[in-house]
């Protein structure tokens, strides 16, 4: 059910294919677009800060949208001020972002900085918007291990989505061709980080070894031959009820029994 009166803006970036490194639509941003499409339908607005010539941006338009606003920014610019100004003026009620860019620093700070700049609340890991009534949205937040938490938050707010959000629909070639990228000139703020920081190919991290801090040969021998687990409690010769009781106690201690 699209909330037709909701003004949703999804921020999109250019991703990179994990194997070939070719520019593509970013996985999480595409999910954010999908979520936006479910909320606002064709009224969804797309916003990108960067180079309007990048063809990969059209993949988002191919998801069924006619146009996208592009705030023109050079490669090494801090896009947060420009995005913040635009969003405030655009009267957005819900701003959706991915949780981490696929190229560049990828610190995942953008939604936090935007929320701070706009002084709006931030929902991290939005999975679903359940309802919007009188300017208050009831949303589900994705937690690790497939869990969900229900939150209520006043509009307008910023939300980041991660891989728990609905899977993005396919991008169709025709609409992607026909869609319009509308560039806008905005002020540029230089990002100073890359003055001193270096991007380098990722070094594989070594597997952590089991470090044995034994001082004597006997201790080393013991550490090498001992079983990892010292063995737990074994309950024999008891009725099934007693056994079940012990299991339930453990499950309740671990708080997995709800």
């Amino acid at each position: 059910m699209p909330h037709n009166l909701l003004n949703v803006i999804t921020l999109v970036s250019v991703g990179a294919h994990p194997v070939t490194g070719r520019a593509r639509r970013a996985e999480q941003d595409a999910r954010a677009v999908e979520l936006g499409l479910r909320l606002a339908g064709k009224e969804l607005q797309l916003l990108h800060a960067g180079d309007p010539q990048v063809e990969a941006l059209r993949a988002y338009l191919g998801m069924g949208l006619a146009e996208m606003t592009v705030l023109q920014q050079p490669p090494r610019a801090d896009v947060v001020p420009a995005l913040g100004d635009y969003l405030r003026d655009a009267g957005a009620q819900l701003v959706l972002t991915g949780s981490q860019a696929e190229v560049g620093e990828g610190s995942g700070m953008l939604p936090y900085l935007l929320a701070e700049q706009l002084d709006w609340p931030l929902v991290v890991g939005l999975a679903e918007v359940e309802s919007v009534t009188e300017g208050v949205a009831q949303v589900l937040q994705a937690l690790p291990r497939g869990q969900r938490r229900r939150l209520q938050v006043r509009l307008p707010f910023v939300a980041s989505v991660d891989n728990a959000a609905p899977e993005a629909r396919q991008s169709a070639f025709g609409p992607a061709r026909r869609g319009q990228l509308r560039p806008q000139d905005v002020a540029v703020v230089e990002d100073m980080l890359l003055e001193e920081a270096r991007l380098q190919p990722a070094r594989p991290r070594p597997k952590r070894l089991k470090v044995i801090k034994a001082k004597t040969g006997a201790e080393r021998m013991k550490a090498a031959t001992a079983k990892a687990s010292a063995g737990g409690q074994v309950l024999t010769d008891m009725t099934p009820e007693q056994g079940a009781e012990a299991i339930v106690t453990l499950l309740r201690d671990e708080k997995v029994l709800r």
Partner: peptide, 21 residues
């Protein structure tokens, strides 16, 4: 040996007791 808690007995009876509990 791996378990932190092991209950020795017939699975059917213990599962039933667990459900009841």
């Amino acid at each position: 040996k791996r378990a932190d808690l092991a209950v020795i007995g017939d699975s059917t009876a213990i599962l039933q007791a667990l459900i009841d509990r």
